[in-house]
Amino acid sequence: MKKILLLTLSGILALTLLTGCGKKGVEGSVATDGSTSMEKVIGSLGESFTGENKDVKFTYNPTGSGSGITAVSEDRCDIGLSSRNLKDEEKNKGLEETVLALDGIAIIVSPDNDVKDLSTEDIAKIYKGEITNWKDVGGKDAEIVVIGREAGSGTRDGFESITKTENSCKYRQELTSTGDVITTVAGNPDAIGYASLASVNKNVKTLKVNGVNPSEKTVKDGSYVIQRPFVIVTKTDKKLSKAAQAFFDYITSKDASEIISKAGAVPVK
């Protein structure tokens, strides 16, 4: 009996020592700013991270890619969020990009629209105002209402560069967030828009592009051609705080891949 009690006490002591040696959760705050398209992905990652680190305050400010890049450059946030690659002039200012995931840019219409598939050439012609009626691409006789994002949006930059429509789009409306584009297109049976595949909901219909449905699989294998990176932006000459570094390490690890995938994007890990 004495021997059993001794072994039990030894086991409790060993467990206590192991618990004491465990890694303590980080403390502090992590401020992110930028791409509205990354809201679901970064929100899910932030929720998971703070669930494991109760003493960390996480914030996300959805201002758009350009604003997020400026915010990290001006030290107004820890980590910037961009749905496009950094430009050379931004890198020359001491900014560094890390690709977190890939995202398809879905071409969206109202569920009441009969069109199911468009070529990249037809999409370009629609946005440049060369095709103005849905009947010319297999739809009903109705004027096409062209919806897009504001200048500085990473989604707009990605869409226009891939479709080769830079500085030539004839937008009816230029909206300031992914959510606004989805809501506007959903409410207009004659509208067309583009939005992050990770953010698309059942209120709109995604079109095939060149016969290919937008999906995690087709983005990953490259067969869905309208896609772009989700990028996290930091400064090369400024060390992140302990909390921000821990968050950075977490979201770029393999452990975050499933969360990124469930949020609708394609993890690069």
Rank of each mutant, 00 (worst) to 15 (best):
T218N: 14
T218L: 09
F247D: 09
K217F: 07
V219R: 04
N213E: 11
N213D: 04
K239G: 01
K239M: 00
L240E: 03
Q227S: 14
L207I: 06
F247R: 05
E216V: 05
S223W: 01
K239T: 15
K217M: 04
K239I: 05
D221C: 03
K238V: 10
S215M: 13
L240P: 05
L207V: 07
L207A: 07
D237C: 05
A243F: 03
N210W: 04
K239F: 00
N213C: 00
T234D: 01
V231K: 10
V225R: 07
V233N: 11
R228K: 14
I226N: 13
K242L: 07
V209F: 04
V231G: 12
F230M: 13
F230E: 15
G211M: 12
A243K: 10
V225S: 15
T218E: 10
G211N: 05
S223K: 09
P214K: 13
K242A: 14
K235M: 02
I226F: 04
K239H: 10
A246P: 01
N213A: 06
D221S: 14
V209S: 00
F247P: 03
S223P: 02
V209L: 15
K217I: 02
A246Q: 04
R228Q: 08
T218W: 08
I232R: 01
R228G: 15
S241A: 12
K238Q: 07
N210F: 14
I232H: 03
G211K: 08
I226V: 15
A244D: 07
D237G: 06
I226P: 10
S215I: 04
T218M: 10
S215V: 05
Q245H: 04
K208W: 07
P229N: 15
K217W: 12
N213L: 12
I232T: 07
G211I: 05
Q227C: 10
I232D: 06
V212H: 09
F230T: 03
Q227T: 09
F247K: 09
D237F: 00
R228W: 00
P214H: 06
G222K: 12
N213M: 11
L207C: 01
K239N: 13
Y224A: 04
D221H: 11
T236I: 13
P214R: 10
K238N: 00
V212F: 04
A243T: 10
G222C: 07
V231M: 07
K217G: 13
P229T: 14
V231A: 08
K235R: 15
N210T: 03
K208R: 00
E216K: 14
E216P: 04
A243Q: 09
K208E: 05
I232K: 00
K238C: 00
I232G: 01
S215K: 11
T218V: 04
P229V: 03
V225L: 13
T218C: 00
K238P: 02
G211V: 09
V212N: 06
G211W: 02
Q245F: 03
A246F: 08
I232W: 12
Q227L: 01
T234K: 12
E216T: 07
I232P: 02
K235H: 06
K239Q: 14
P214D: 08
R228L: 14
S241R: 09
D237W: 01
I226M: 08
Y224Q: 12
S223I: 13
G211E: 09
N210P: 02
G211Y: 03
T218Y: 03
N210A: 12
D237H: 05
